[in-house]
Structure formats: structure tokens, C-alpha cells
Computed example of a mutant assay.
Amino acid sequence: MELSTAAIDRVITLALAEDVPFGDLTTEAFVPAEATAEAQLVARESGVLAGAEVFTRAMRARDDRVDVVGHLTDGQRFDAGTHLATVTGPARAILTCERTALNLIQRLTGIATLTAQYVAAVHGTGARITDTRKTTPGLRALERYAVRCGGGNNHRFCLSDAVLAKDNHLALAGDLTEAIRTTRAQLPHTTHIEVEVDRLDQIPAALAGGADTIMLDNFSLDELAAGVETIAGAALVEASGGVRLDTVGAIAKTGVDLISVGALTHSARAVDLGLDITL
């Protein structure tokens, strides 16, 4: 579940440039330059932690004398009232970086927490929960990491990673079988090819072309089961479209291999975490 420091620091740099473009007027007016402080990162509600290193690097971004001691690691569950980390050091730096650090860890922990709920809902079925490219612009690496912290899997990271022919591609591609075969001939043998279909009668053409994964988009439960039966292990089967926490368990029971859920990243609610000065 590694996340590169370069990806973290790029986001933090942009966030601080947005939040502190030419100084923190309030902190510099109210807090003496020599003041030090201790603060606790406290959970106001339960969740699954993601972004501990992001929080640490954000808190230290203005002054490396700030020290952050984490009490949990990413992927661990916590209850309301849990102290997740202790921050000590120059008070001005702590206060200036507080909101940026909290925004990021609350967002990532929210994604991990929601992902864990989806993973629990399909437990025992064999289906894997995956994210999508419906991420916050600029935060994809961090949000994808948070999905992994919650026990989910990542779909392709970007348009350069793999082929995923969706409805608009197919509308312009002509014969589906021939389009897949032509695509295969143009690409390295290691490149994965996925095709989205929105009708059962499109599946044979996708299979004939040699698709590695067939996405069944907005299928009913009966149609999903029929699609799984038709594909019969010749390709991975992905269910997608309008997946909710109250429906994902039934979708998994149809026998699909993957369930992609855009809500993991585009609709996750930030978990309520606070930074409380204690000294």
C-alpha cells in the first residue's frame, strides 16, 4: 500500500500555496514566534485510517522541527475518541498547517472507511471491490491509496495504463469483434483490454474479439447472472453502474469477479477528525 513521498508533497505544496499564499495573519498576530505546543489528532467518530504519512508531511511542511508521532497505522480501524497522533513543536507552524493536514487525512480516511464498508458487504462472495477514475483532480494517487487502505482494489490508474472501450468508443469503432482484434494487434502483448457492454447480445462479439475483461454496465441482477453464465470464465466479469452499499451484496452474489464503485472516491464523506491543543 505504498504511496510515494513525491505524490504526497506535490499535493501538500499546492494546498499550502492555496491556503497560505502570503502568511497566516491570524496565527502571526495571536501566537508568539517562540511559542511551542502539543496537540492531539482525535477521532470524533469511528473509521478506518488512511493518510497518516500525508498528515505527518503536511504538519511538517512549514517547519521540520514539528514532530508527529502516529499511534495507528493506515488500514487500522478506530473508534470515536481515539487519539490517532500526537503533534509537538513550534506553535505557529502547527496552526498554519492544521487545516491542510486535516483536510487531507479526513478525506482519505473517509474513502478508506467507505471502501471497507463495501468490502465487508461482499465478504465471502469472491467479488473484488474496485475504484474508478472518478477521483478529485490532482488527488488521484492519494485517493487510490486510501481505497487500498480500506481493503479495496484499484482499477486502471489513468488512460495510459490499459484499454477500456466504453459506449462512446464503441459507437465510433464499428464492428466490435474486429475492433478488439485490431486493437490487440497494435498493442504490446502485456496490455489489458476491457470492453464495456450495456446489452447481453453484445457479449458474444466481445468474447470473439478476445477481450480480457467484459464490463456489464447498468445490468439488472438477472442480466448480470446471465452475463456471467454466457462469459463462463472466458474473461473477467466486471459489474458497474449505480452500485450502492445496499445493492452491492446482491450484485456480488451473481458471480461477477469485480464490482467498480465510483462512489468510493466521488461521494465519500470526510471522517470527522480534530486537532486539539493540549499544551
Rank of each mutant, 00 (worst) to 15 (best):
A91H: 07
R99Y: 08
A61E: 07
A116M: 00
A61F: 14
Q76G: 05
T96R: 08
R62D: 13
D63S: 10
E98S: 03
H71I: 14
C97I: 08
T88G: 07
Y118T: 04
V87L: 05
P90S: 08
A112D: 13
L95I: 10
V66Q: 09
V66F: 07
R99N: 07
I94S: 11
G89H: 14
T115E: 01
D74T: 03
T113K: 09
L95E: 03
I111C: 06
L84S: 02
A93G: 08
G89K: 13
E98V: 05
V68G: 08
Q76M: 09
L114P: 03
D67V: 15
L84T: 14
R92I: 14
D79P: 00
Q76Y: 14
R77E: 13
I111T: 01
T86N: 15
R99F: 08
V66G: 09
T86E: 09
L104Y: 03
R92C: 09
A91M: 12
I94G: 08
L102P: 00
L104T: 03
T82Y: 15
D67N: 14
L104A: 01
L84H: 07
V66L: 05
L114G: 03
G70F: 05
G110R: 04
R62H: 10
D63T: 12
F78I: 10
D64K: 09
T88C: 12
L102H: 01
H83Y: 03
